[in-house]
Design a protein around this nucleic acid. Structure first.
Lengths: 340, 340
DNA sequence: TTGTACGCGTTATCAG
DNA sequence: CTGATAACGCGTACAA
């Protein structure tokens, strides 16, 4: 029931050296006589000694830990993002502390992640409000934003994807290749930067093709299949006509496709559908979803890299925007490609 | 570039009290004069003071942190699991440290998660080898296994789902309701307990219906769509006959369905298909997948609860097995239900 | 190349 | 109810 861990003192005593020497072989911080070092290493193995993280942190003033703040944990998004983050952090020797801010934190006022337990923070979308961001920024604490950009005036590096460009290209594809004239656009959540940028891309596409922007063709999908479904059902009830739908993301596309098919519409014959993300199920929808592939895992990787630069006091890139790619499948009306 | 944090001493001085008193109002560890307490609280707010986690850990000998060890981060599994874990941990005031063991750890020999930086460990499937499990167990360090059980002789609590029962019920459903006679079974990875238990369930179902177990009807799907796909293609080439497939999990089902459909088979008319998990895309496959719903999120929640009991020195349940539920959709041949 | 001694920011014990 | 003060385990000048 109790478990007395070996300490650096135990190791030192047993190896017949001082704790300084043990510390030196542990961290390779100063030359140590090879034989002595070996002896220490053996004792470390015998005692199964691992330095106590907190003691180390306290003495060295570095936690060797990165914090990840998420608004919530759900959706197709998180697995690749997390994988990317974990891989790079782990490789760089950082532990990863995770917290979802939208959970009803038992202890309010308790800051779950911050300067007291991490060396830097990765903040996904709106996981942290501007006030806190400003506070962190003022103290000079390393922060990198993912899929969001800093509040006006703050210099906080961020990593995101080509939301606008990807959307524009996709909408232009619908127009140019499939002759679409009335393209529905489903927005993501208000205040979400991905969502806003995609809307800009939608507008730019229309503009570049000299088509009018019709606000009646824009609705709120919320990055959420059920909501998308309801929205489409309403459109159908009101007998709005449209020949294509650009869904805010792939989650939305699921609801869109369901609603359309239940109403007896054929995709892509009656209406073209295109999404954003290329999530796991884009490929397995019927028909397979034409979408914009967002390199989520790389966002995670790049975020950690920038954060580590910040932690090391190096100059990070102010903003990294990762390239997206059009993934043409069948929901837009393009011919069947050999799958796989 | 530097950021001097306020310490408990700063707070004490400014509030005109000793650090002991500050500590007391912070942790409610002894009565403090209300007025004094209020004054301290105000100063804490003014200084934006947050206790330094490492110092706290060092002094109190508790990290207030739970570690999660995963074999890898991928698949439909992780989002709900993580959500469950994070929610309960967070609510109980624990931080969550995550590490994937299959990443090529930069520093070998470095134990990423353990007694030095957590109060207890959640271990998912084969994330940790038996030797390490034994070592941890001997030191009395709190560990809870998820979707796995302890090596022989070790008393380590575990949380899993009714793999065997769920599979048995599903296979019996295929036999009883749909009259299936030759049911293919796709195993998950070797050594994976979920996989092995499901196979037992498959055998039990056959036995309970007095059907012979035919090893030729069992193949390795590996919980992986592409592998499942290849396996099915081979079966088709060899002209093996079967009238149903129980896929090891839903990921497998994706590959199975693709392979069948490409070969021109109709589901469920020509062959019934059933999966396990009820992952996000079970519902959106065509046809919608009949599957066994595994309460993954609850596994995460329950795992944390048991771990916290262990940490508190209470007696945990030796093994928690969460109930599964048959989700009958259309891939097995059952009639269309009104969706949603 | 090695050892001593101090400090990191808290908690916890013990006197008052 | 409050305040000193000794740990907690380790890194790191500084001295040898």
């Amino acid at each position: 029931m109790s478990f007395p861990r070996a300490t650096i003192t135990d190791v030192a005593r047993r190896a017949g050296v001082s704790i300084s020497t043990v510390s030196r072989v542990l961290n390779d911080t100063a030359p140590v006589d090879p034989e002595t070092a070996e002896r220490v290493r053996i004792v470390i193995a015998e005692l199964n000694y691992t330095p106590h993280a907190a003691a180390r942190t306290l003495a060295s003033r570095r936690t060797n830990t990165i914090g990840l703040l998420l608004p919530n944990i759900g959706g197709e998004f998180y697995t690749p993002l997390l994988r990317g983050i974990e891989a790079v952090a782990s490789e760089a020797g950082y532990d990863l502390l995770i917290h979802s801010t939208h959970t009803p934190a038992g202890n309010t006022s308790r800051r779950p992640l911050g300067e007291h337990n991490t060396d830097g923070l990765l903040v996904f979308t709106e996981a942290v409000d501007d006030a806190e961001l400003i506070r962190l920024n003022r103290t000079g604490f390393p922060v990198v934003l993912l899929h969001d950009s800093a509040p006006k005036g703050l210099k906080i590096p961020s990593v995101t994807v080509e939301n606008r460009k990807g959307t524009q290209k996709m909408v232009e594809h619908l127009i140019d290749v499939h002759g679409c004239k009335k393209i529905l656009f489903l927005q993501g959540p208000r205040g979400n930067e991905d969502s806003e940028e995609r809307e800009k891309g939608y507008r730019q596409a229309l503009e570049s093709r000299s088509m009018a922007y019709d606000p009646r063709l824009v609705a709120m999908g919320g990055f959420e299949p059920n909501q998308a479904r309801l929205v489409i059902e309403q459109f159908l009830e009101r007998r709005m006509t449209f020949d294509a739908i650009f869904t805010g993301d792939d989650d939305n596309a699921v609801g869109v496709i369901q609603a359309l098919q239940e109403a007896g519409w054929k995709i892509p014959q009656d209406v073209a559908v295109a999404g954003f993300d290329d999530s796991l199920f884009a490929r397995i929808l019927t028909p397979p979803l034409t979408t914009v592939r967002a390199p989520i895992e790389q966002v995670g990787q790049e975020g950690v890299r920038q954060l580590i630069r910040l932690i090391h006091g190096e100059e990070p890139e102010a903003r990294v925007t990762l390239a997206v790619e059009l993934i043409i499948r069948q929901s837009c009306g393009c011919s069947v490609r050999l799958s796989k």
